[in-house]
Design a protein around this nucleic acid. Structure first.
Lengths: 132, 132
DNA sequence: ATAGCGCGCTTGATATATCAAGCACCTTCT
DNA sequence: AGAAGGTGCTTGATATATCAAGCGCGCTAT
């Protein structure tokens, strides 16, 4: 009675006021014009079509980092963004809404690709939100 | 070709040739002079004493990132190191083409603490090892 | 029409993470 | 001595992730 779990979320506007993990992943997959089974193959069976379907319909609460990573790589999106949406990261000290923060050009000294740079920045936020 | 799931014993020298996750965590806890229940309390129940015991005895294969993070923070060790030991990160291609990294002093522009810097560097390796 | 294929989806089964409750043992007290 | 409390540990119960197998539907083709 204390807490009913099901007040979720067809449209979960949790931390950043964004859509749910499932809807987000679904929209991206469609953008990439991939079928569920295509994703299954391209991820070398790391994510089955059945499972992806459940994820996209928000029937899975917290896919493992491995799963999220496989999808992030295939779709070429930020792993940490998925980690946030999956609830691994507490949205405590999140940035002000919708604000793009400064760049980290100095990361270039490590031959970071733009994606790596973005991921590192996301990860920094991740760490700091946890530190709270 | 399949990797048989081996549940070998106490001294698992996997990725970095180090001890298993459980033994590693146990040694650190003792170093910090904390009891299982003390850890339970200090992590605000994020890790129960029963569960920690299982982890330390390698009865748990892959604790969640949340759990690992709680321990990493309490012990003040690298989360990514635990992620490696937990098997979230494949220790395959550490060297892509004789690549080695230097320091990342420039991270200081983001007011990184030494720990954050270390974690970011670990995480960079994490990303790159994942990238194939 | 019908055979086939691709699509998203459902479901049963299995593996595993996680914890509350308890147990056996060991130190101090009084 | 016994109570009280600390220690690591075990276990039964519960929740959840994950997949193989299958379903029904819409397309093309014959």
């Amino acid at each position: 009675m204390a807490e009913t779990k099901e007040r979720d979320s067809a449209t979960t506007e949790s931390s950043t006021g964004e859509i749910s993990l499932g809807k987000y992943l679904a929209s991206i997959r469609k953008d990439r014009k991939l079928s569920l089974r295509a994703v299954e193959e391209r991820t070398k069976k790391q994510v089955s079509n059945a499972y992806l379907s459940q994820i996209e319909n928000d029937q899975i609460k917290q896919p493992s980092p491995n799963t999220l990573n496989a999808l992030a790589e295939l779709y070429e999106i930020s792993l940490e963004k998925l980690m946030v949406k999956a609830g691994y990261i507490t949205p405590s000290s999140k940035r002000k809404s919708g604000e793009r923060h400064g760049r980290v050009a100095t990361f270039a000294e490590h031959n970071l690709t733009p994606e790596e740079e973005q991921e590192l920045m996301d990860y920094l936020e991740f760490m700091r939100s946890r530190k709270k």
